[in-house]
Each structure stands twice: as structure tokens, then as C-alpha cells.
Amino acid sequence: MAHIRKLEEQELIKALRLSEYAFQYEVSESEKEERLERLKRHEIWGEFTEEQLMSKIHILSLEVSINEKFYSMGGVAGVATWPEHRRKGSVSRLLKKSLLSMKEKGQMVSFLHPFDIDFYRRFGWEITASMKKYNFEAKNLFIYQDINGTVERIYKDDNLDPVKKIYEYYFKRYNGLLKREDYWWTQAIFTKGFQAGVYYDENKNPKGYVLYKMKDQLLDVQEMVYMDELARRGLWNFISQHDSMANKVKMILPIDDQQPFLLKQPKIEQEIFPYFMGRIVDVNPFLEQYELNKTDEPLTLHIKDSFAEWNNGTFVVSEGKVEYSENADKQQGLQMDIQTLMAALIGYQTADFLYDCRKISGSKEEFQKFKEGIPTRPASFYDFF
């Protein structure tokens, strides 16, 4: 008889072996101890039959920034099933168990990197961040004149405070960014071969950084974060100074970036790719923290969530408070599913677009009230798990 339970510490090797098989990589013996130590941070649920692990799911306890407030987030990772146990509903049962666990711990949202977007949409997740990828030849690089700041190189073992300070500035600019703890910076950001170039203004204040790797004549820029235009130019000059080393440049930047317009030859290879997905785990506390409607005129939301039944029903928001009802009048208020609510409130899609394409239905008066409660801030996500 199959049953679901948490993996014990001595069973972490089972999770690692399944990951190696499912994701087709191999951890060397010298790296295995460190990898198992990292897994101790994960809450891992498995479905077993006669104590044989059939499938598993990892939950990482993290936080993300939405409207400059931090929300406890359950990061879903490492979802895998041995081939002989696939297509039997195991992952569905594990996802359900993981959502219940997140709800009990007060994790209001959940993020994941999908192998298949449509698959996870069935369980209430929706795209919450897309990124832009640029590939262009180094001959497109150029130098801005009269930039008086300086750039200093920072490595994994250096003092990372300047980089952290700059990154946290982006909480004002984007929704959905991960709050990075110290261990995350060293384990997940400054990975093998990557370093940072930090731009300091004339007063020696850190104002921007690029996270990059230079290898095989490719300058690979994974993050470019800046606090003002001078910092952007200073970082661009730093990138351009690699023109004798690099034949090509690759850059990963947020969805609203306009860098190609500034190039000498803007006709470059550009790709917009859906990157991460998110879902609201528990609508009631999420809406209370979000403060969607601070007025005394109630805003009524009818939410459909076919996978997390506690979110199914009507939520009346007024003066920052939320009341839940299972059997409210559907003729009043707005109707949408849990995926649409997430896309709108995190800023991945505009409320206008979602209303026009009928992902949101209801009166224009109610919609206007809903729309006015959403700050204009796009969504982004640089990290991976």
C-alpha cells in the first residue's frame, strides 16, 4: 500500500539517487557529502511502497518580495518519479501534500521552475516571471565617455555586502524577487566560474553590479543590477572592456529591459522565455498582507481553485481585512481562478489584459476597484532551484 511521508535524514541518499537518475547528472564521491548536507535544508516528501521510494518532492523555505513586503514562500524543486512508477498520480498526490504542508507553516506563496508549464497550471501554478536573453557579437560593444566611477571585482569568498545592498534595491523595482540569505549567495549565486564586477560612484558608494563568467571567448552575464543610469553606463563600460577577450556576449535581463535599443546594431538575437511559476497557497492571509483594498467599500472576489479547496469561495476585502464565504452571491464581485489572481497581483500580467481576455469577469465598477489596488510594478526572478 502506497503512503506519503517525510524522508528521514538517513534517507537523503535515496532522494539524491533518484535526482541523479531523473535529471541525468552524476554527483562525484568527493561532492556527495556536501550535496547531502545541503539537502538537510529541504523538506522532502516521498511516496513509498513497502519502504521503497517511488517519487519525491522538495520544499525549500524561502521568502520573496511583493510590493516591498516579504512573503514566506515554499519553493518546489526536485520533483521526480522512478520510471516504473510514473503515470499513477504520485506527483499529484505529492503536490497536494506539499501545499498542505506549506499552508500549515504559513507559507503564503509557492514558486517553482517548470519542466512543463501546462502540467503545473493544472495544479494552480501560473507563470510569474519571464526573462530576456540577448546574444550578440562583441563588435557591438562600445564605451560611454565621462564615467568617473570605478569597478571592483568581487569573488565568492570576499565581502559580499556591496552586492547584497544593490540587489535589495531591486525590491523597490520588481515583484517576486527572492530574499537571498548569506548561504544562498555563496551556494546558488556565486557558482563555479562566476564573479561580480561592482560599480562604485565618485563617492565610493556601490551602485550596480554584473554577475558574469568569462570562458571560451564568451562573456556570460547572468545578472546586471543597477540603481541609476550612471551605474548602468559604468557597468556597460566594464562589459565593453572585455572586447579583446570575448567574441560573443550573452546577457540575461528582466522582461522590461531595453538595452538592445542602445546598441550600435540593435538587430541581435533576442529571446523572451517564461522562466518561473508561482501560486498563492493560502488566499486569505495573502490578501490581508497584500492590502488589496484599503477603502471601506467592499471588494468581492470569487476564486476558483480546483486543487486547494480552502481557496475555493468568495473573499470580501475591505479596509485591509478579508472575510471568507463559501456560498456568496456570484452575481456581485469579480470571478477568476487562482492562477489569474496570482498573475495579476504579482504584476506578471496587467489587470486590464486579464479583464479584456476574460480571465477576470465582472462589472467594470468592481474591476476598477480591483485594478486600483494593484501597484504598478513588474515581476522578475533571477534565481533557480
Rank of each mutant, 00 (worst) to 15 (best):
E365H: 09
M54P: 12
E137S: 14
R35P: 05
A2H: 10
T300G: 07
Q265G: 08
L345D: 13
Y212G: 01
D118R: 04
Q52Y: 10
K165M: 11
T300F: 02
E9P: 13
R5F: 09
L60I: 12
Y290H: 10
S363N: 13
E372K: 14
G176C: 06
K294N: 14
I374K: 09
D228V: 04
S110W: 06
G320Y: 05
L292A: 03
K267H: 05
L253M: 07
K133H: 13
K40I: 12
M277P: 11
Q195T: 08
M54W: 11
I13M: 12
V27A: 02
L12Q: 08
D243L: 00
R121E: 02
E323W: 10
W125H: 11
R87N: 12
K165T: 10
K192C: 07
L262M: 05
E34G: 09
K179C: 12
Y25N: 04
E31R: 09
C357H: 10
M54A: 11
V76L: 13
E29R: 13
W236T: 00
K14T: 00
F381V: 06
I44G: 08
E372M: 14
M1A: 12
I360G: 13
H85S: 15
S101M: 06
P114Q: 08
D329M: 15
I57E: 00
S92V: 12
S61Y: 08
Y134A: 03
R121I: 06
L60V: 07
Q195S: 13
I154V: 01
H302K: 02
E181D: 02
K132W: 01
Y170D: 10
F276M: 15
F111N: 07
N203W: 13
K267Y: 10
D146Q: 14
S72E: 14
V316N: 15
V281S: 15
K156I: 00
K204I: 06
N312Y: 05
A188H: 00
T314L: 03
L341N: 07
L99C: 12
M102R: 06
M224I: 13
E291C: 15
K14L: 08
E271F: 10
F315H: 06
K56R: 08
K164N: 04
R358A: 15
H58V: 03
G347I: 08
K96V: 07
L141C: 09
A379N: 07
